[in-house]
Amino acid sequence: MDCGTCETSSPVQLMTPEVVDVNLSISNKAQEMLSDAFGDDRSMALLVGVLSGGCSGYMYDLQIVEETDQNCQEITVDGFKVLVPNASSHLLDGIEIDYVDRLMGGGFKINNPNAESSCGCGESFS
């Protein structure tokens, strides 16, 4: 087998999506839950990203981070520092971060106007 990795074969050109300036909102309930999670330390940031996978092809990725090596745009929403990777900005513009308070299937939810469909658990969209 000739992998060609040490020679001249160049990678298949990635389909780089257009970077958009993301606007997003956080519901009152989600703000309450984020305040509990952050405490008084507002040096941390909420990373809102997208990974491949899930039943519908894309999965949301929510993390509280100090920093990230991803190329991100930093926005402040209702006092929270939010990081959105540029690579997935086209999928996240206009989203609302919500919190659903119920015993089964509860937790943070993303309401995404860009999603054509989403799977039953709400973690995945296309």
Partner: peptide, 14 residues
């Protein structure tokens, strides 16, 4: 390809 986003993946056709 549209799903790679910010993941560390590159593909070469050999």
């Amino acid at each position: 390809l549209p799903r790679i986003l910010s993941q560390d993946v590159s593909i070469t056709d050999v």
